[in-house]
Design a protein around this nucleic acid. Structure first.
Lengths: 208, 208
DNA sequence: TGCCAAGCGGAGCAATGCTCCGTATTGTTC
DNA sequence: GAACAATACGGAGCATTGCTCCGCTTGGCA
């Protein structure tokens, strides 16, 4: 459904200036994201690309969509790294730890990406959606390999990834915060299994 | 330094209308936070309190400061729950797990609090600061009790709390996400200790 | 009662994501 | 090569934020 495809009348290819602008925009956005972080204003990207606001929004329906497009390659690489690690590493648990480390590194390298990923507003966050669709199956496969076939209580790849993603928020500006370390601990916890005897009500009651 | 104190000439007590407005504002803010989440616009709070924008900003220098003031009681309760749990529970590890569960419950109950907490912009986020000052020592004490006196490699209370806080971001709107569960796993990981053999470069290299 | 510091309200500023529409460019058709 | 849609472009403008500024009001002391 994403490629034009020969359904109905041929929808006529994009004009060359359109294609060129799309490319220019991707490059400009990538550059701006490096210098100003993923939260850089759209206007800045437009200016850098020598293009108007409207042009951006014709090519990318929303801001997150642009971000998703910029990082598409890297997400792809990460997705492919999963099976590869499983082959190379002897222990599937190690493979999972390494893959998680790679994911963390990717997120913290791009300032603010993790944060942008987390804002699941309205359920129509393209960025979030794209990451989930592409990477969750990979993560699930790693978990399966490490813990055996999925049991009902086991943590899902989706949860683990969202957890890691959230841990990567706000890492910069804070030398005392180490997202990689925390993610490692989280994965360790996921591999270890859950402690089940908690009854939080004792603590929680006085707080409401 | 926060209370007027008898340094220099007595600075004259606040006027009654000012005190009344401050109280009204705290109540209005609490109410709005419940219905609209912690991210509710300041204008809305002012309107609800029947008060102008300026009044809010005279009483609370910045938006996060208002949020901090609103949740002061609960934070206090959570801080006091730490030592209590340590006394009651036989196992310090269990005490830590329970305390963490209470922290999570507090954060997810208030829509968006965790997110507001995370935005450490400019280093002058009162909200963040307040939580850290009051709760980190408690968390450290629990960790000490569970893992013995602090060793160089051990995760710090600060990191653990920030990690848990981040895990609580975006929990609502997503039935598949369970912050409490992830936090539990993270604490389990922290109690278990770290896996040290990761060499993320193998995964990471192709991503940059 | 008169005075004035303390307090108040809300218009206004700057930043941001996104939309709208008049204008310019492209590529097809003759 | 010229005419003419269809497509694409630019950027002014809208709505929403957090926060500031300043003229007016009011509490409380003398």
């Amino acid at each position: 459904m994403t490629t034009p495809g020969p359904a109905g009348s041929t929808p006529r290819a994009k004009r060359v200036d359109a294609r060129r602008n799309e490319q220019t925009l991707l490059e400009a956005a990538a550059a701006v994201f490096v210098t100003d972080g993923v939260d850089a204003p759209v206007r800045l990207i437009a200016e850098r690309a020598g293009v108007g606001m409207g042009t951006i929004y014709r090519h990318f329906p929303t801001r997150p969509a642009l971000v998703a497009a910029v990082y598409q390659h890297q997400v792809e690489a990460l997705a492919e790294a999963g099976p590869a690690l499983l082959r190379e590493a002897g222990d599937p648990a190690v493979a999972l730890q390494r893959w998680a480390a790679g994911f963390v590194d990717f997120l913290v390298t791009k300032h603010g990406l993790a944060g942008a990923l987390g804002s699941d507003t309205e359920g129509v966050n393209t960025l979030h959606q794209y990451f989930v669709d592409r990477l969750v199956p990979v993560c699930d496969a790693l978990l399966d390999a490490a813990l055996g076939p999925k049991t009902s209580g086991r943590v899902s790849g989706y949860m683990l990834m969202r957890g890691i993603g959230n841990l990567c928020i706000g890492g910069a500006n804070d030398p005392h915060y180490d997202a990689a370390r925390l993610a490692n601990l989280l994965v360790t916890g996921a591999l270890t299994g859950e402690q089940h005897d908690l009854d939080s009500d004792a603590v929680v009651a006085p707080l409401r």
